[in-house]
Simulated assay, not measured.
Amino acid sequence: MSQTQFAAGATIHIHRHDLPDGVDFGAMAAIDTETMGLDPRRDRLCLVQLSAGDGVAHLVQIIPETLGGRGADCPNLKRLLTDPAVTKLFHFARFDVAALCQGLGAVTAPVICTKIASKLVRTYTDRHGLKDLCRDLIGVELSKQQQTSDWGAIDLSPEQCAYAASDVLHLHAIWARLDALLKREGRRDIAQGCYDFLPMRARLDLLGYDEPDIFSH
């Protein structure tokens, strides 16, 4: 099943179970997830949003077999997540990579995280949320009204779809600004080291090493 919606100049394709054959995100795919809560060990993965930064968002619903879906049977999506030739661009990748690993059994790599990049170079502020980056770096105001809605519903509302799409549609533009700042401040190599470690950090979280943190004293 695939549906298409249009919202604020963007095209939103909604897919159940998996990406369709032939979808090409180029060398970098912006990705976000929606789950039933904030603990990926407990709260199931419901939605995976993707964009090539071209004003088009693909929303993949992950529906468990108990609700008539296919669960983690999504070969096209998992192929993209693990493709070494495609960089996966996230905001707060630590959570999303853990959610994808727990929900789909796929270790996503290579990855980039705009939240980490922001914290490395925007040290003049403590505002590093996606809404803050959209406003401060590209002049876009995001609505977070649907953030806490029920993402496990089989039929998502147009408002939910628009919200979910907005989380990936602007990441390429934000990354371009942050990458320029990383180069300017000489911290790109530090950022890359952080990105390379993120898949392992997510796996540690899933093993329960988030609290207490294995790196704490």
Results as ranks from 00 to 15, higher is better:
M1C: 09
Q5P: 04
F6R: 13
I14N: 04
I14H: 07
A27N: 10
A29C: 10
A30W: 09
T35W: 00
G37A: 04
L38W: 02
P40N: 02
P40L: 09
R42L: 06
L47N: 05
L50S: 05
G55S: 09
H58V: 00
Q61C: 02
G69L: 15
G69K: 07
G71C: 02
C74M: 02
K78Y: 06
L89W: 01
F90I: 13
H91G: 11
H91P: 00
D96K: 01
L100R: 11
Q102G: 01
G105D: 09
A106W: 10
V107L: 14
I112R: 14
I116Q: 11
A117T: 08
A117Y: 00
D126S: 10
H128C: 01
G129N: 00
G129Q: 07
R135S: 11
L137A: 02
G139V: 11
G139I: 06
S143D: 15
S143V: 08
K144C: 10
Q147S: 12
S149N: 07
D155E: 14
D155N: 13
S157H: 01
C161V: 08
C161G: 12
Y163P: 07
A164V: 04
S166C: 01
D167K: 13
L169H: 10
L169E: 06
H170S: 05
H172I: 06
H172T: 07
L181D: 13
R184V: 11
G186K: 05
G186T: 03
R187N: 02
I190V: 07
I190R: 15
A191R: 10
Q192P: 00
C194M: 14
D196R: 03
L198E: 14
P199L: 10
R203A: 15
R203T: 12
L204R: 09
L207N: 05
G208I: 02
Y209R: 12
D210W: 12
D213S: 08
S216R: 08
